[in-house]
Nucleic acid binder design. Structure first.
Lengths: 331, 331
DNA sequence: TTGAAAGCGTTACCAG
DNA sequence: CTGGTAACGCTTTCAA
């Protein structure tokens, strides 16, 4: 027989199908002897429950949408990896939802999530825009928001302390002797970018530095624009904090193509601490976000949501990842 | 009313639920007038079909597993992006399945795929091992294999012509004046790696070159091992073809940390043509695989499988992506 | 602790 | 072309 159903198991075990059902989903509600017998027969028959039938009847599946703007961004792909791993560990399956930062797509995924009876979803939003869609579906649904502080305290969030990260970067550069330190915000509009920008400004002032920001002229390619700004600045900053690793990579590439070497001519520190940074040229010093924990905690929070637990707001601490893209200023 | 069911629509439209069902799934089997009326009412009510109930009854869902060894590898993440986009276009949803190259995990995903009534799956296997799992689950005829030539001709495949890609790389380097050209195979065991290796050997001989292979000593870190080999070689190769972009990145990083500059001291060409290569330092010249097409075609082939079409074997042609990591040899 | 019956929201099949 | 009936495989009452 090909795909044994619950009735096949019930018949073979000489019990009713409700007993088989209970043996799997509420083992404590079945006499030990019966349960073991049923599970044995089920194993012999190679039975496995139909998630589809279960979802239809119980109105709850194990399909967890992971909503990200762009999976080719290594931050999100590392996040996807850790989230998917944590999900599988707990018997969930991750549905990959790539929005390209488009609110309509996000909305579409959220409604698909309802239709699939997803127990909860994990959202790593790019911009404010995604969250409007959330507001429409998210509150009635169950959603965990990553890397984004949310106004609504009922939505659980997992974030990393931007202020601490920026302070780590700044203090590292200062300890190397840098004083003219610039910040490269990159593409604006994302909430985390804004957080880091603010933190830079604040922290620089605290340390008595004048906060230089390398804002590319609009219309330019971002990294080219930042390098232009850097070249024009007087005094020219001896170190740059990039708002994320991707910006740092692009910046170093652009500098390289103009004959400026990192860290010889200028130190660069990123923000994310992507594994890939260890294979960049030069190896990228960065503020490391605990991405593996973020994924795991997101799934745990979602899981807890099901048991009616209070929504939590977890703030993780970044660490410094010392590699080869920073050194003492040459002057 | 919250989630209107098919019966709600039927009642509101004054027809039977079978008619509503047909209006959606086999429109041509319903009189135009009736169909338009039904669809209108359905839209008014905000009705959308329950994919779960449909899957249970029809034994077919729109959930397509995408099975990859590692999503943080940019080749696979770009593939995931294009595949997911193509899937959504046709009303499929991609389930992200990350195997870490583990056969058990692959097997688990394949059986989950059956349980979810997936119409087909897309597999980008890492090693031979993944395919054994495929065979065991008897889902051979519901799977599209990417980037891997399969022995069984009934399995549809999408691949890129390795021979042509290697020839493109070799001829590019030769046209620059290189004669001492080495190949860096990187991690072995994957089928495509083997293909490219063979192609290099063959093509080098055709061009009258002696095929130098930079095989890292076992136990070493791969990129360090390759660089060691390169340093020891006499005459020292003036150019290296990396078996994929990731190896090229790691190689350039390792060379950089030893004071060897690319392309000044040695030219490097990758294989994949990842978007990210444009942000590397230096910008990476590479053999470009048409990743967007691979994803799209994979979904199309899967789609066709459902209509009982013959399984196809699509071979795509690579192109040369000229950037900044190659130049004339200095000597 | 177990059994029986009634759905969950669809589609397949057979009549008309 | 449309309507009715019976499933799909499970969970959830409610009774025993």
């Amino acid at each position: 027989m090909n795909n044994p159903s619950i009735d096949d198991v019930a018949d073979a075990a000489g019990v009713h199908r409700s007993t088989v059902s209970r043996a799997f989903s509420r083992p404590e509600a079945v006499r030990t002897e019966t349960r073991e017998h049923v599970l044995r027969i089920a194993a012999d028959l190679g039975y496995s429950m139909s998630p589809v039938a279960r979802a239809l009847r119980s109105k709850s599946s194990r399909l967890v949408p992971l909503i990200v703007p762009d999976i080719t961004n290594p931050f999100f792909s590392e996040l996807a990896r850790t989230t998917a791993a944590a999900a599988e560990t707990r018997g969930y399956h991750v549905i990959l939802c790539i929005t390209n930062g488009d609110a309509d797509q996000t909305a579409g995924y959220l409604s698909a999530m309802q239709a699939m009876y997803s127990p909860f979803g994990v959202v790593a939003p790019s911009t404010k825009i995604d969250l409007d869609a959330l507001a429409r579906y998210g509150v009635e649904n169950r959603v965990v928001v990553l890397d984004r502080v949310e106004d609504d305290p009922t939505i659980p969030t997992v974030t990393v302390d931007s202020g601490e990260g920026i302070a780590l970067a700044l203090e590292h550069l200062m300890s190397l002797g840098h004083r003219a330190i610039a910040y490269a915000p990159g593409i604006v509009g994302t909430h985390t970018a804004q957080d880091r920008w603010d933190a830079f400004r604040r922290t620089a002032l605290v340390h008595g530095l004048s906060p230089t920001v390398l804002q590319p002229a609009p219309g330019n390619e971002v990294s080219a624009g930042i390098v232009d700004q850097w070249l024009q600045h007087d005094p020219r900053p001896t170190a740059i904090i990039a708002s994320n690793d991707l910006i740092a990579f692009a910046l170093i590439s652009e500098l390289g193509s103009r004959g400026v070497a990192v860290p010889r001519d200028v130190s660069i520190i990123g923000f994310d601490g992507l594994d890939f940074g260890a294979r960049f040229n030069p190896r990228l010093t960065s503020v490391r976000q605990p991405i593996a924990e973020m994924g795991r905690i997101a799934i745990e929070l979602g899981d807890k949501l099901l048991f009616g637990e209070q929504s939590a707001h977890i703030v993780l601490r970044p660490t410094l990842l010392l590699r080869s893209s920073t050194q003492e200023p040459s002057r």
